[in-house]
Amino acid sequence: MDIELKLIRNTLIIRLKGEFDMLKAEKIRRQIDERLQDDQVRNLVFNLEKVSFVDSSGLGVIIGRYKKVKEKDGNMYIVGAQPVVKKILVLSGINKLVPLFKNEQEIMKV
């Protein structure tokens, strides 16, 4: 699984690619948490456009980061979830806490 991190002002954009399961979860969690230690990083955007599979291990990383961001009084967004991935997000209830957007440009509008 590929991960691309990009900081735009105080928002860290996390672009993931591939299958987000237990094999990748730990490494991705570590990389994000490292960046979250930086006070400058307040908000997170998970870009899941290129994620073809997610299970509870991947979801655990996403939900866990939401809690961390809230502790920093920041915001989190999820963009580009494919129907298969979206179904899992909705079933977990995270969509009630974290707004889902079509793409990164849509967040900029709000």
């Binding site: 299970d55 509870s56 979801l59 655990g60 079933l91 977990s92």
Partner: peptide, 13 residues
Amino acid sequence: PSRMGLGFTFMKS
């Protein structure tokens, strides 16, 4: 504590 406890819920669903 670091996990969400969703696995069995997904399996059941």
